[in-house]
Simulated assay, not measured.
Amino acid sequence: MNPLDRLADLFAGEGSAEYLGEAVTQAQHMLQAGALAEEAGAPAHLVAAALLHDVGHFHGAVTGRDLMEGGHDNRHSHTGADWLGRFFGPEVTEPVRLHVAAKRYLCTVEPGYFALLSEASVHTLRVQGGPMSPEQARAFAAHPGARDAVAVRRWDERAKDPDRPTPGFEHFRPLLEGLLKPDHASA
């Protein structure tokens, strides 16, 4: 199956489920994150990363959400990035891989960031290891992908508005098509 068709099916199927206690579905959340990145004028790879950042929560794609809801880290950022890596390059997958670390980082280095987190995001922060230590934060800041991951994280946090008009998955298909690895791009 074409990877974009597979993603479209995930957004339409599992994506219609509630999203870890948020007021939006999982698909709405991810679509809003992509739309926020697009509105900010982000490059295509960051729009894609924002759109796909939580694909690791889908059961059919990777490990699903049950562990997270039960208080165990499902490492959705890593498993999602690994799964997406079959189809997209590191410019898309690394911000996905690092978006949880970016939340932990921002909680350490940015006064007031923690107060922006939803109740569900505070819960997952605890499950994911809590705020970084100062040493961990310095190491994260030195990572070449830190800046992109922080950008995705900021869109992630804002993408939880049940009243926000949000484009559907098909809106992003041409952008994603242009980012597919050559062996997955359509002729």
Rank of each mutant, 00 (worst) to 15 (best):
L106F: 04
D66K: 11
P90E: 09
V122E: 07
Q128R: 07
A120Y: 03
G70I: 00
L106G: 04
L125N: 06
H57R: 09
D73F: 13
P134K: 08
Y105A: 04
E110P: 08
L125P: 09
L117P: 00
L116S: 14
N74F: 01
A120E: 05
R65D: 07
L125R: 08
F58K: 03
V152Y: 02
E135S: 11
H78R: 15
V100W: 07
P134Q: 04
G112A: 06
E119K: 13
F140L: 07
P111T: 00
W83Q: 07
R65V: 14
A115W: 02
P131C: 02
H76I: 09
L84C: 13
E91M: 04
G89I: 01
E135Q: 13
Q128G: 11
W83R: 09
F58M: 10
H72F: 14
M132V: 02
E110N: 02
E94D: 09
S121N: 13
M68W: 00
G71K: 12
Y105C: 07
R154E: 13
E91D: 15
P134M: 06
Y113S: 06
P131D: 03
V152T: 07
E69F: 03
D73Y: 14
A137N: 08
V122P: 01
G70K: 12
G89F: 05
V62G: 01
L98P: 06
V109H: 07
V62A: 15
R75P: 01
L106H: 02
R104P: 10
D82C: 08
G112V: 04
D73A: 12
K103S: 11
L67W: 10
D82N: 10
Y113N: 04
A139R: 13
V152I: 11
E119W: 02
E94M: 13
T108L: 09
R138F: 03
D66A: 15
K103Y: 01
R104M: 09
K103N: 12
T124V: 15
D148Y: 00
R147G: 12
L117I: 03
A101W: 05
K103H: 08
G80E: 11
E94R: 14
R126F: 05
L98T: 00
